[in-house]
């Protein structure tokens, strides 16, 4: 058996990350790295303008872009916060609520199909071994879609679709990461806000705002995002695996670093798999191809 030497140049090799792997988001006060596993959880980030929410979303997007079993759906009212990932994303929605509604409806269909598929296999949740991609939905500025653009019906439909994704998408591998400056009831309904399992509170101006992000009662227990210095952007309280808020500093990617990762991710994804090949997109396959 002869082994043909592969041409070393021009064949991209992915870093082999998976969305089922823990995602590095930063360090905690003890200098330990902080990881979150997003595949089965939704994350809500809140905090004052300039707090670092988009920084967190970009860190997550970078991991998702470099993961082989991942697809990105980006909704960004500001265009620039997640705009650099456009080439790696399967859908990039700007300030356009009709397009946002379309993509959410498609995601809802995918989710229903996945649950039917899981049911047919007698299972209850997607795992890494299934070879299905995790579709990460990143929404920067929910308020823009849920309370600013479009008619009232469209806004309500957006909230309803998003709530359905947040409520049911978890086990089907469709996690939602959403950011908004103040998730009070006039921006997103409490019924939607309370479904997010992970919370990240960047600097807030009042303990009440911090409580709105983290959940009721944390400020009274001493966990309030008001004690973050305004100059310390990217510091946040994160409620994730542990259950109690942890003070973390989110890893930050500069514009040029994002551009580098986005180019690389677009490059390793270049032969876009056709829909029929989606179930073959496992890490094993890539490993053999490499």
């Amino acid at each position: 058996m002869t082994i043909a030497t592969a041409p070393t140049a021009g064949i991209p090799v992915g870093p082999g990350l998976s969305m089922f792997d823990p995602i590095f988001v930063g360090i905690d006060e003890f200098g330990h790295p902080v990881y979150i596993t997003l595949a089965y959880r939704n994350l809500l980030a809140g905090g004052e303008p300039g707090g670092g929410k988009s920084g967190l979303l970009n860190t997550i997007a970078a991991h998702a872009a470099l993961s082989v079993d991942s697809r990105l759906v980006l909704l960004d009212g500001k265009l620039v916060e997640l705009g650099q990932w456009e080439d790696c994303a399967d859908a990039f929605i700007g300030p356009d609520i009709t397009a946002a509604l379309d993509v959410l409806k498609r995601l809802q269909l995918v989710m229903n199909n996945r649950y039917a598929w899981l049911r047919a296999h007698g299972r209850r949740k997607l795992t890494a071994a299934d070879g299905l991609s995790v579709i990460t939905v990143l929404v920067d500025e929910i308020a823009f879609y849920s309370a600013t653009v479009g008619s009232k019906q469209e806004q309500e439909e957006f909230v309803a679709l998003l709530r359905d994704l947040v409520a049911r998408g978890r086990a089907a591998g469709i996690p939602v990461v959403a950011a908004t400056q103040r998730p009070s009831f006039d921006i997103i309904p409490t019924s939607l806000r309370d479904l997010f399992g992970y919370r990240a509170a960047f600097r807030c101006t009042t303990p009440n705002s911090s409580n709105i992000v983290l959940g009721h009662g944390w400020a009274e227990q001493g966990y309030t995002a008001t004690d973050i210095q305004p100059t310390n952007q990217g510091a946040a309280y994160l409620i994730a695996e542990g259950g109690t808020p942890r003070r973390i500093k989110v890893a930050y990617l500069s514009d040029s670093q994002i551009a580098g990762i986005a180019d690389y991710a677009a490059w390793i994804r270049r032969p876009r798999p056709l829909p029929a090949q989606v179930p073959d997109l496992t890490r094993l396959d890539l490993g053999m191809a490499a």
Partner: peptide
């Protein structure tokens, strides 16, 4: 306050 330094991402 120790979380003042900028944290880089290993993905880079």
């Amino acid at each position: 306050e120790v979380l003042t330094a900028q944290v880089g991402s290993p993905l880079v």
